[in-house]
Simulated scan of single mutants.
Amino acid sequence: MIFEVAVILLALLWALSVWYFLNYARRQREAVAHQQVIDAMRDQRIKDLNKRLDDYQNGSVRMGEAIHEVRAVVAGLPDRLERLEQHDPSSVTFTQAARLVSMGASVSELTETCGLTQAEAELMSKLHRSE
């Protein structure tokens, strides 16, 4: 009788151990599947960020090239502007009139010196005295 009870207890203990092991194995499979989903989402996010980074880098390179081209075009403009200002010494430009205003020239002096109309001289005086 004791032997039979021991066998029954061992059988129950064995069944409980098998159930516990199967339950543990199922939880492990679920954890692995969940981790794979998380890994796939992380990998996709990394790919998206890499693509965005590449786009930003390409945009920066294109912008740098455009700035370089603009810088090359703009580099000669001060000399060109000076040549244009000095091209006809008999005509005084608005730039020269602005310089005269900044030095304190009056509206009547602007009309006489620069050949500006009264309205142009007043406008130049108002614009460049307010600076």
Rank of each mutant, 00 (worst) to 15 (best):
G104L: 14
Q28D: 10
K126D: 08
N58A: 11
P89A: 06
E30I: 09
Y56N: 12
A75S: 11
F21I: 08
L100I: 00
F94D: 07
N58V: 02
R71M: 08
L110D: 02
R29G: 08
I2T: 12
V37G: 02
A31S: 14
W19L: 14
Y56H: 12
K47L: 08
R42L: 10
Q86H: 03
Q35I: 06
L22D: 13
L110H: 02
D48V: 08
S130Q: 14
Q57Y: 11
V107Q: 12
M124W: 04
F94C: 00
H128V: 01
V107T: 14
A6V: 14
A31N: 09
E69A: 13
A15E: 10
D48E: 15
L53D: 09
A119L: 07
Y24T: 13
D48W: 05
L100G: 03
S90M: 06
M41K: 07
E85R: 02
A11L: 12
A72Y: 06
I2H: 13
T95H: 00
H34C: 11
Y20H: 14
R62Q: 07
L127P: 01
P78W: 00
R83I: 06
Y20E: 09
C114I: 02
V37N: 04
E69C: 05
P89F: 04
S90I: 05
T111F: 04
A98D: 03
T93E: 00
F94E: 04
Q44W: 03
Y56K: 09
A31V: 04
L10Y: 11
S17G: 11
V73M: 10
A98G: 02
A15S: 15
G104A: 11
K47C: 03
S17P: 01
L10D: 13
